[in-house]
Amino acid sequence: MRSSFNSIVAEGGIFKDMLPYERFLNFGPESLTDVELLAIIIRTGTRDASPIDIAGSILNIEKGKESGLNSLFSLSLDELKSVHGIGEVKAVKLKCIAELAKRMAAQRSKSSLDCSNPSHVASYYMEKMRHEDKEKVILLCLNNRYKLIEEYLLSIGTVNSASLSPREVFMKALKCGASNVLLLHNHPGGDPTPSRADISITNKISESGSMLDIYLIDHIIIGDRSYTSLAEKGLLWN
């Protein structure tokens, strides 16, 4: 009923002439385009650019392989502020909106996360990690049924390296009573191929865990829309 009514109103010109905020109040957020949704968040324009114009300029920016709304994940504050009509306050607000969207998507799927399935784990963490410009190492502590007990950010590195300490891994695992652990880290360059160092430290951790009866079930490396599971590749020596 709503969609047919919207079509009738739009044909009459009323819907088309409404400002985004008015359209939201009358027909809901689903009636708005990406530009209009962003314009409501931007709220105010300049003397020569409306919020719609400013929103359009932002969505026309391409950052790497990202464009449209997805570019908000990877655009820096300075890049957003380079858009005419966007100051620091609006840039921060837009980055917060992107972060909220990321966290909401993550929260929705976290409860059903199957940590025994590398593809499922990689898919869940892909959006969370592939936009990062530094290597981050995440530890998942699991029970004996491979269900998530706790998640820890172990380290943040430079563009191409992150420190990983077996001692810290098992301190966290013992603290929450984990039976199994799973490691993830991202490669900011986008290629998830494991380095020799990745393989070496993974198996050092696996060997240490076996002595504690805490088993490393996998180490997953996140790239740009791709991943490598060391377990799937036969590179994890249990």
Rank of each mutant, 00 (worst) to 15 (best):
S123L: 00
I61E: 10
M171H: 10
L77D: 00
L174F: 01
T202Y: 06
S208M: 02
N117I: 02
L69A: 08
L235P: 11
E99K: 10
A101P: 04
D198W: 11
K136N: 10
I52K: 14
E150Y: 08
Y215L: 13
I52V: 05
M104P: 03
A91D: 02
L37P: 01
C176D: 10
G28M: 11
D17G: 05
D78F: 04
S76C: 00
I52P: 07
K136L: 13
I220L: 04
M129G: 12
G189K: 13
E66Q: 13
S226D: 03
S229G: 05
R103Q: 11
I205P: 02
A39K: 01
I205V: 14
K172C: 15
L182K: 04
E207F: 03
K90H: 02
L59A: 11
S76R: 14
I217L: 03
M129I: 01
L236S: 06
I222G: 06
E135T: 11
L113I: 08
S229W: 03
L139Y: 08
A101M: 01
L182C: 04
K110Y: 05
S82I: 00
R196W: 07
D34E: 15
G177F: 07
L183R: 03
G45Q: 09
P118V: 06
L212I: 08
W237G: 07
S119H: 09
I217A: 05
I58L: 14
V181A: 10
C96N: 12
T46C: 08
L69I: 15
